[in-house]
Computed example of a mutant assay.
Amino acid sequence: AGFYYIPGTDTCIKLGGYLRAEVALGTNSVYTGNTSGVAGAKNRLSNYYTARARQDLNIDTRTATEYGVVRTFFDATFSWTTGSYSGSGTTAYSGAAPVANGSDGAVAGGAVGVYYAFIQFAGFTMGKAVSQFSAPWTNYPGNNFDGLVGGGGTVTGVNQFTYTADFG
């Protein structure tokens, strides 16, 4: 369910993701009000808002072969936050510390992150995925932290080459 069969092949594909936008008014950073520094001046030389956006894209493919199903999965994000305008001086306030840049303000900041990128075939998982040691009863459903690197409490996975078998 949710997959699109690619005509002429044995491959199905599923595209997903989300787009999130946030605007904070009365601030020149995301978590702090504009009460000090350039932002505290509340004049034409400072911003009165901060905007953020995050886009997530995931691609899941399944291909039937003579030896079983080959699965590929990719999940990446792009995050962007507005810069902070600090007037005609030589210092732009971006984040927690001032940054000298000799312009009218700090540029917006963007970041690209790959959460998961793996291939699965015949019990093998190769790439960046959630740890095979992640227990299903920990973290969000159980409201406790497992503390394992790459476990269910992480969203960015861990690099691995693993083999799993079902002795069911």
Score class of each variant (00 low, 15 high):
Gly113Cys: 09
Met126Gly: 07
Gly8Thr: 05
Ala108Gly: 15
Asn143Tyr: 08
Gly26Ala: 08
Leu19Gln: 08
Gln55Asp: 10
Tyr49Gln: 09
Ala100Gly: 11
Gly151Met: 07
Asn143Ala: 11
Gln160Thr: 00
Ser134Glu: 08
Leu45Gly: 13
Ala92Cys: 14
Arg44Gln: 09
Tyr18Pro: 01
Arg71Met: 02
Thr77Ala: 15
Met126Ala: 14
Asp60Trp: 06
Leu45Pro: 04
Tyr5Ala: 12
Gly17Val: 08
Tyr67Gly: 05
Leu57His: 10
Asn159Asp: 06
Gly157Cys: 00
Asp75Leu: 14
Ala96His: 04
Gly95Leu: 05
Ser131Asp: 07
Tyr48Ala: 14
Phe78Ile: 15
Leu148Lys: 09
Ala21Pro: 06
Ser79Thr: 15
Gly109Lys: 12
Gly113Met: 12
Gly68Ile: 01
Ser134Thr: 05
Trp80Phe: 11
Gly37Thr: 02
Pro141Ala: 02
Gly89Arg: 02
Pro141Asn: 01
Tyr140Arg: 03
Gln55Met: 15
Ser79Glu: 14
Pro7Asn: 02
Pro7Trp: 00
Ala117Lys: 01
Asp166Trp: 06
Gly26Gln: 04
Trp80Pro: 13
Thr91Arg: 03
Gly95Thr: 08
Gln132Val: 14
Gly123Lys: 01
Gly16Met: 04
Leu148Met: 08
Pro7Ile: 01
Ala41Tyr: 06
Ala53Val: 15
Thr91Lys: 02
Ser36Tyr: 08
Thr162Asp: 09
Gly2Ala: 03
Leu148Thr: 10
Thr27Arg: 10
Ala21Trp: 09
Val38Gly: 06
Ser29Glu: 09
Gly142Asp: 02
Val112Met: 12
Arg54Gly: 14
Thr82Tyr: 04
Gly2Asn: 04
Ala41Val: 06
Val99Pro: 01
Ala165Gly: 12
Leu19Trp: 10
Gly26His: 03
Gly168Arg: 11
Asp104Trp: 10
Ala41Met: 06
Phe161Glu: 05
Lys14Cys: 00
Thr156Glu: 09
Tyr93Lys: 05
Phe74Tyr: 13
Thr61Pro: 03
Gly123Met: 01
Ala51Lys: 10
Glu66Arg: 13
Ala21Leu: 11
Ser86His: 01
Leu57Asn: 11
Thr164Cys: 05
Gln55Trp: 13
Asn144Gly: 11
Tyr31Ser: 13
Gly110Pro: 11
Phe118Gly: 02
Asn47Ile: 07
Ile119His: 03
Thr154Val: 12
Asn58Leu: 09
Asn58His: 11
Thr77Asn: 15
Thr162Ile: 05
Ala24Val: 15
Gly26Asn: 10
Gly123Val: 00
Trp80Thr: 15
Thr81Asn: 11
Thr63Ile: 02
Asp10Ala: 10
Gln55Ser: 13
Ile6Ser: 02
Gly152Ser: 12
Tyr48Gln: 14
Gly151Thr: 07
Arg62Gln: 05
Ala64Lys: 07
Ala122Met: 07
Gly33Glu: 10
Tyr85Cys: 08
Lys128Gln: 03
Thr154Trp: 08
Asn43Lys: 03
Thr50Gly: 07
Phe145Thr: 13
Thr35Val: 15
Asn47Ser: 05
Leu25Pro: 04
Gly142Glu: 02
Val130Phe: 07
Asn47Gly: 04
Ala165Glu: 04
Pro136Tyr: 07
Gly89Thr: 04
Cys12Tyr: 09
Asp60Arg: 00
Pro141Leu: 03
Arg54Ile: 15
Tyr49Lys: 07
Ser94Ala: 11
Gly102Gln: 06
Thr61Met: 03
Val30Met: 13
Ala51Tyr: 06
Asn101Trp: 01
Gly168Ile: 10
Gly33Ile: 10
Tyr5Phe: 05
Val155Phe: 12
Phe78Lys: 12
Arg52His: 10
